[in-house]
Amino acid sequence: MELLIAVIIGVLTASGIYLSLRGRTFPVVLGLTFLSYAVNLFLLVMGRLTIGAPPIIADGISRYADPLPQALVLTAIVISFGMTAFVIVLALKAFSEMGNDHVDGKHKP
């Protein structure tokens, strides 16, 4: 399972980097979103992958899941969600003000 998760994070990051280097705002926004997905997944698995273990102290149990990455990733998700919303609005504003959706506002023939 570690390998699967690692591959998923890698693919998400790679597509995120590729898309955020594109010249139009929509792929860039998608790329930033992919990057934030990748990093959220990365944060979550940094507490190691545990299955069926409780995150809080319970009687008679010696194996626990780390609860902290879940709190961290929740914060990170909320922030990246807000940022994505902001960057979409900004991209729309740029489109309406510059007349095209190129990140530099240049019109290519």
Binding site: L32, L35, S36, A38, I79, F86, L90
Partner: peptide, 10 residues
């Protein structure tokens, strides 16, 4: 500014 800083946050 926003794009580069979002990459930085990641």
């Amino acid at each position: 500014f926003v794009t580069i800083n979002l990459v930085g946050s990641t």
